[in-house]
């Protein structure tokens, strides 16, 4: 381990820890989980410090790592790291627990929840992380052009769903699509060999 790597990781950590924590807090139901997501993400960065992009691309790279950590988390691979004990205890004090159900959610939260995961994430990255398209491209591993297309569609779908909800035409649960939560791809009809009509977009 060179001093340069130590210094680089320390600088990266100092520059991004609050943003990364916010990223995690926004995406977990239990604040304590956010501490573990942050810890595991930085562990990856520490182990791969030589691969972490320089300057402005480091933050979206970290978000991309955190995204995968969260995916593991959502698959049930929940880890409690002793490294995160102190941060976990702090979060329990400063972060209000999220509502587990749909009750009490705002219209826009319901509209967001009704979109597929890919749409949700790209919208969160814009609205909450305030990332530019090229940064989103780093997080999601897409080209900037692909981000532009997906973002355009996601914004449109959010607006459409929000309109339906506010007009009372849309069920609050809003999960009319049968998409893979992981990929957003429509696949249930094909995968399960059931006939019927399915919306692809």
């Amino acid at each position: 381990m060179s001093t340069t790597d130590d210094e680089r990781f320390s600088a990266l950590f100092a520059a991004t820890n609050r943003d990364l924590l916010a990223y995690a807090v926004r995406r977990v139901s239990d604040p304590a989980d956010a501490a573990d997501v942050v810890a595991e993400t930085y562990l990856v960065a520490w182990r791969r410090i030589a691969e972490v992009p320089r300057e402005g691309r480091a933050r979206p790279w970290l978000f991309g790592v955190a995204r995968r950590v969260l995916a593991n988390h959502h698959r049930g691979e929940r880890r409690r790291s002793a490294l995160a004990d102190r941060l976990r205890a702090q979060l329990g004090e400063v972060v209000p627990p999220a509502d587990a159900g749909l009750q009490g959610r705002s219209d826009v939260e319901l509209a967001l929840a009704g979109l597929d995961e890919n749409d949700q994430e790209i919208l969160r990255l814009v609205a909450w992380e305030e990332l530019a398209r090229d940064e989103i491209a780093v997080v999601l591993g897409l080209s900037r052009a692909a981000v532009r297309v997906r973002l355009h569609r996601a914004r449109r779908r959010l607006a459409e769903r929000l309109t339906l909800i506010t007009s009372g035409d849309e069920p609050a649960s809003g999960d009319a699509r049968k998409r893979s939560r992981r990929t957003g791809h429509v696949m249930s009809e094909w995968a399960s060999a059931r006939s019927g009509v399915e919306e692809a977009r």
Binding site: P31, V95, A127
Partner: peptide, 25 residues
Amino acid sequence: ALRAADPARSARLDAVDPGAFDALR
């Protein structure tokens, strides 16, 4: 509307003790 619904807004993340981050790092 989505920006206004940011869950981190209701969290007092600024109140997290820097020492907790130091310990993690």
